[in-house]
Design a protein around this nucleic acid. Structure first.
Lengths: 342, 342
DNA sequence: GTGATGGCTGTAAACGTTTACGAGAACGTT
DNA sequence: AACGTTCTCGTAAACGTTTACAGCCATCAC
């Protein structure tokens, strides 16, 4: 039910008795005589004129839109990142277009070709899995792209990532310092970027601590979800008896705790737990979960700013930022600290 | 680092030795001779041509974009809804533009005027607070809008909402059936749409059950968040001793449980808890939380489909859908049911 | 052989802006 | 009084498509 017809520059110009060029100039604050300014303003107000974004985009060659593609929209971490990116780009006058790709790498390829249709000025991409073909597409893209997470080999793009190897090391060191000796690991899928990195970090941390590597002490969940975590934790506890578990994710950590309590064991007394990502869930859980903060919102902000920078200066040198993780200690890993909660 | 210059219809036409009209026809599958088709296809491939979305939009008068504005991006419920909407509109060939407004009604006004710039073909809006001015803007809008949640008075738009009055009734009835008599209520801010509806539902359910209304037995958190929930729960327990608490939100429910256990009381033995929204958190919590499922993803899907329908038939009669809630019973409200978990 | 029919294809206009260019007008300088 | 500057404003082209229209040619019926 259109109350008013769409009004254009032409309409406003007619009404104000000036040329369309003058209307455009007034709307954009370019110099004009006071008389013209007043007449145009009045006419525009009466007609409820707002300039058309599409036409402006076509002329200017830019859309004022930034595309965001994250593999796993359900994951609370990505939600936070999305929120932060939205905030930053909105403040800079851009709109955020959500291009939710599934975990399927093909979706990402599709996305990249459709990016060339020019519906956005740039892209922030956080791929779950990187393939050679994705790399090719990335290299071939004409538009600025910022990658959150690891880059495919041979790709030189602005990049922000967490040092998850160091993050796992923080967790392992903390547990070792608490006197834990049999430190197990519940990972996500090893064929994903974060999964591979975290496994790598776990193994290195064990070696550095002088602990033996025990194949039974690590399992990979089929997914970074709570459900998958329940299964993985059960498998782990069937095949070994750790006194601590590092989990690649807060969701996995909650799942582990549930299985542990189901089996009549206590956290942290019998088994200490450390999660990862430091989401709200870590804080909400009972007991609250010590978690490695991979600084997701900080990474998100950095990525957004990187993209904005490149948009205003396409020649800028490629920048690759590594964000340092930080350990937030809570009740799940420290015996006798329960009263410290809340 | 553009590897290839942007290629246009004109370039392709030159290369193929045909007119731009022919190229356009081939790209759109309109009838053409086999010879022309082959030549155009070849030329397009060599040049890596993809049609420009902006130009097409300008000509066609539609952007293939749908805007989504939710007040509280942090809330897990909205995240799920966003995900679902994204899925539906993407499948229909639309892109989703995220217009995160804060809780400030002014943001929504801004959004509505900027919608008239035509950057999207329609809007799905879930306002947290409705004001008279918002209602005016909604009535004046030229573009299709679907509202999730209550409509401002006098606004006739496609609409999807949950029957939260009935939802609360489900919770109260369930608790009453479990023999609970002193059923308290932790609400969110009462000046929000959901807050007002839930309070209303609570009062009505109490009356229908023949329970007395006790002003001490209800508190409103300053926000639908965990932190606010902690404070609200503490206040509630200071001023009354309920044997059950209905919470307007799963986050508030978790907070209540934390405070309860902090005070040495047990859930559900001393106090039964029912949450709302039935998010993952209800399932993850220890004990798991009985929750009123307000069918957020179903509502989201309905809203998306409503908008799609109106986009293809602007004359369709206004439709207002009310989705029935459903109670998911878990451990937090049933004594002796602990073993049923997992 | 003529006219009508129909299928392809090219020309050009249109979508709503921004902006280079040039024409006047107003003003100051000599 | 003539000229140069400066400022304002209108004309028109351009962004990359889609599409109405008309032209052309081949085919076919008579």
């Amino acid at each position: 039910m259109p109350l008013t017809k769409k009004s254009t520059l032409v309409l406003v110009a007619e009404r104000a008795g000036v040329s369309i060029a003058s209307v455009s100039r007034v709307m954009n604050g370019l110099p004009a005589s006071q008389q013209v300014i007043d007449r145009v303003r009045a006419a525009a107000d009466e007609l409820g004129y707002v300039p058309d974004a599409t036409a402006r985009s076509l002329k200017a060659g830019k859309t004022e839109q930034i595309a965001l593609a994250v593999a796993d929209v359900g994951n609370p971490v990505y939600v936070g990142m999305m929120h932060e990116i939205s905030r930053v780009v909105t403040k800079a006058g851009y709109r955020l277009v959500l291009s939710s790709t599934g975990s399927d790498p093909l979706d990402q390829i599709d996305l990249l070709t459709s990016l060339n249709r020019g519906f956005a000025d740039g892209l922030i991409l956080s791929p779950l899995r990187v393939t050679e073909e994705l790399g090719q597409q990335l290299r071939a893209s004409r538009l600025p792209i910022v990658i959150i997470g690891s880059l495919p080999p041979g790709v030189e793009l602005d990049n922000v990532r967490a040092d998850s190897v160091r993050g796992i090391a923080l967790a392992v060191d903390h547990l070792a310092a608490q006197g834990r000796r049999r430190i197990a690991f519940i990972n996500g899928p090893v064929d994903t970027v974060p999964g591979a990195a975290r496994l790598n970090g776990y193994l290195r941390a064990l070696t550095e601590q002088g602990h033996p590597q025990n194949a039974d002490a690590q399992v990979g969940a089929s997914d970074f979800t709570y459900r998958a975590g329940l299964k993985a934790a059960a498998t782990l506890l069937d095949q070994t008896t750790p006194d601590a578990i590092v989990c690649a994710n807060d969701l996995l950590a909650v799942a582990a705790m549930k299985v542990i309590s189901k089996r009549g064991l206590r956290v942290p007394d019998d088994i200490a737990i450390v999660g990862m990502d430091d989401t709200d869930i870590a804080d909400l859980a009972q007991p609250s979960i010590t978690s490695v903060d991979l600084r997701s919102t900080k990474r998100a902000r950095a990525a957004a700013k990187l993209l904005l920078r490149r948009l205003e200066n396409p020649q800028a040198p490629v920048e690759q930022i590594v964000i340092e993780p930080k350990l937030t200690v809570r009740a799940s890993s420290v015996t006798g600290a329960r009263e410290a909660e809340l």
